[in-house]
Amino acid sequence: MKEKLEIKNLDDLYEAVLCLETVEECRLFFKDLCTIPELKALSQRFQVAKMLTKDHVYSDIVNETGASTATISRVNRSLSYDGSGGYNIVFDRLDKKEDK
């Protein structure tokens, strides 16, 4: 029963994020929701993913982002083994947005 509650609460969070319409609204919401270290960790993982999709090597990613090789490996696994994962959805949509 507890697992279903956790999933529901997570879905509630996802629904809340989907209600946000601007970068400023996202900034305000995530500032309220997360601590500064949590935001830095999320941002770092996203930057790592961006760099990996542009074929940067681990040493360059470590130097530019400060991420550990363990974090880079984890992000790389998400990108490599799940081609239909969330990172790929976001990057595809950001690419389409840039093309417009």
Rank of each mutant, 00 (worst) to 15 (best):
Y87S: 06
L52D: 12
N76E: 07
T22K: 08
L10S: 11
L33M: 10
T71Y: 05
K31P: 01
D12L: 12
A41Q: 06
V57Y: 15
E24T: 07
D12W: 04
K4L: 15
L20R: 01
V57P: 01
I72W: 02
L33E: 02
I72K: 01
T69I: 11
V17A: 14
C34F: 11
A49G: 11
C26Q: 04
F91Q: 09
D55P: 04
V23T: 07
V23E: 14
D95K: 13
A70L: 05
G83W: 02
E25F: 14
F46G: 03
L13T: 00
S80Y: 11
V23N: 12
A41H: 04
A16K: 10
V90C: 15
C19A: 07
K40S: 09
T35V: 00
N88I: 00
K40F: 10
G66M: 03
Y87E: 04
K8S: 09
H56I: 00
L42R: 05
V48P: 03
N88M: 09
F30D: 05
G86Y: 05
D55R: 12
D60N: 10
V17I: 15
F46E: 06
E25C: 14
Q44C: 12
S80G: 08
Q47P: 00
Y58S: 07
T22W: 11
E21D: 11
